[in-house]
Amino acid sequence: MDMPLAGLETLLRRLGAVDAGAWAAVTGSMRSARYGIERPIRLEAGGLLYVGEGLLKQYVRHGRTQPAINRFIRQGEVYAVPHDPDPVYIKTIQPSTVYCWDSHTLRRLLLEYPSLLGSYLKIRDMQENALDTRLWLLEQTGKAKLALFDRTFGQLRAHLKGKDLGNYLHLAYAYISQIREK
Results as ranks from 00 to 15, higher is better:
Ala6Cys: 10
Gly36Lys: 04
Val26His: 06
Leu8Trp: 09
Ala24Glu: 14
Pro4Asn: 03
Gly7Thr: 10
Arg34Asn: 05
Pro40Arg: 13
Met30Trp: 02
Ala24Asp: 12
Arg13Cys: 12
Pro40Gln: 07
Ile37Asn: 09
Arg14Lys: 14
Glu38Phe: 05
Met30Gln: 04
Pro4Trp: 00
Leu5Met: 15
Ala33Phe: 02
Tyr35Thr: 04
Asp2Tyr: 03
Ile41Gln: 01
Ala33Arg: 10
Ala25Ser: 03
Val26Phe: 09
Ala6Ser: 14
Met3Cys: 05
Met30Pro: 00
Ala33Met: 07
Gly28Phe: 03
Val18Pro: 09
Ile37Cys: 10
Tyr35Asn: 04
Gly7Asn: 14
Glu38Ala: 12
Gly7Ser: 13
Gly21Trp: 01
Arg39Ser: 13
Val26Trp: 09
Leu8Phe: 13
Tyr35Ala: 06
Ala17Met: 10
Leu12Val: 11
Leu12Met: 15
Arg42Ala: 11
Ser32Gly: 06
Gly36Asn: 06
Thr27Met: 04
Arg31Lys: 05
Glu9Asn: 15
Val18Ser: 09
Ala25Pro: 00
Gly21Glu: 10
Ile37Val: 15
Ala24Gly: 09
Ile37Ala: 14
Met3Tyr: 10
Trp23Cys: 00
Glu38Leu: 10
Arg13Ser: 14
Ala22Asn: 03
Trp23Phe: 01
Leu15Gln: 05
Leu12Phe: 13
Pro40Asn: 10
Asp19Thr: 01
Glu9His: 15
Met30Ala: 08
Arg39Ile: 03
Ala20Lys: 11
Ile41Tyr: 01
Gly7Lys: 13
Thr10Val: 15
Thr10Gly: 15
Arg42Cys: 06
Ser32Met: 06
Pro40Val: 01
Gly16Glu: 11
Thr10Cys: 14
Gly36His: 05
Ser32Tyr: 01
Leu8Ser: 08
Thr27Ala: 04
Ala20Pro: 05
Arg34Thr: 07
Ala25Arg: 00
Arg34Trp: 06
Leu5Phe: 11
Leu12Pro: 13
Asp19Gln: 07
Arg14Leu: 14
Gly21Val: 00
Arg31Gln: 10
Ala24Lys: 08
Gly28Asp: 09
Leu15Ser: 06
Ser29Cys: 08
Ala25Thr: 03
Trp23Tyr: 04
Leu8Pro: 09
Ala22Asp: 04
Gly36Asp: 12
Gly7Asp: 14
Met3His: 10
Gly16Trp: 12
Met3Glu: 11
Arg14Gln: 15
Glu9Lys: 15
Thr10Phe: 15
Asp19Arg: 03
Ile41Met: 05
Ile41Ser: 01
Arg13Leu: 12
Ile41Gly: 02
Gly16Ala: 12
Ala20Leu: 08
Arg39Thr: 12
Asp2Val: 02
Arg14Pro: 12
Ala17Glu: 12
Ile37Leu: 11
Ala25Lys: 00
Tyr35Pro: 05
Ala24Asn: 08
Ala17His: 14
Ala20Glu: 13
Leu5Thr: 05
Leu15Met: 09
Ile37Met: 13
Val26Lys: 03
Asp19Tyr: 07
Ala20Ser: 11
Leu12His: 05
Gly7Met: 13
Arg34Phe: 02
Ile41Ala: 03
Glu9Tyr: 14
Thr10Glu: 15
Val26Thr: 02
Ala22Ser: 08
Val26Ile: 14
Leu11His: 02
Val18Trp: 10
Arg31Pro: 00
Met30Glu: 07
